[in-house]
Computed example of a mutant assay.
Amino acid sequence: MSDAPPPDDALALLGDEYARAILIATTTEPMTAPTVAAEIDAAESTVYDRIADLQDAGFLTEVTRTDDDGNHYAEYRARLERLAVRVTPDGFQATVDYADRDEAAERLRALWRDVK
């Protein structure tokens, strides 16, 4: 578990269909924003906006990849695994579980994928 964003912010963000679609699309493997846009049938500008919101909330992480020509590009991967919301006398309380993947292992997998 890690620090959760304020419950109202987390619920509002997850109430957005594009934010949810981005998280679902990037759960199994990192994807570029244009790839996500094509996958979820959304405008790239919308995807970039939601990616920024999801990163601010800590629900999405960015990894920089390098292609064969030395160009750098960003790929995104969901970190959010579980969000639990509890009702208390003082209001809502959110608890978040993150999938904190080993970035070195992610980079090695991407390098191996590029070599194939």
Rank of each mutant, 00 (worst) to 15 (best):
P5K: 07
V87W: 10
D41H: 08
T27D: 12
D100H: 08
F59D: 04
V36A: 08
T61N: 13
E44G: 14
A4V: 01
D56K: 10
R79H: 09
L83K: 03
G15F: 02
L13M: 01
A37Q: 01
E29A: 15
V36Q: 01
L13D: 01
L60F: 00
V36W: 02
V85N: 03
G70Y: 07
E75W: 01
V87I: 12
N71D: 14
V115K: 14
V63N: 05
R77W: 08
F59C: 04
A38M: 11
L54K: 00
A43I: 04
V63Q: 11
V115G: 10
Y48C: 11
D114Q: 10
T32Y: 01
D9C: 06
D53T: 04
S2E: 15
Y48N: 13
W112F: 15
D68G: 10
Y76M: 01
A42N: 05
G58F: 03
D102Y: 06
E75I: 02
V96A: 04
D49V: 03
D114F: 05
R82M: 11
V85K: 05
R101L: 15
D68M: 05
D69R: 08
E62K: 12
R101T: 10
A94N: 04
A33S: 07
T88R: 06
I22A: 02
A52L: 13
L11A: 04
A12D: 08
A38Y: 08
T27Y: 11
A10L: 01
S2D: 15
D16N: 11
A84N: 10
P7S: 08
A43G: 13
T35S: 15
A19C: 09
D16K: 05
D102K: 08
V63W: 05
T61L: 11
V115S: 15
L83H: 02
E75R: 06
E44F: 05
T64G: 05
Y48S: 13
R82D: 14
P30H: 05
E39H: 13
H72C: 09
T61R: 14
Y18E: 12
Q93D: 12
V115W: 12
A110V: 00
A43M: 12
V63M: 08
R113S: 09
G15W: 01
P34M: 02
V85Q: 05
H72G: 11
R86Q: 13
P34G: 03
T28M: 14
I40S: 02
D90N: 14
A57R: 01
N71G: 11
D9V: 10
R50V: 00
P6E: 15
R65G: 00
T66R: 09
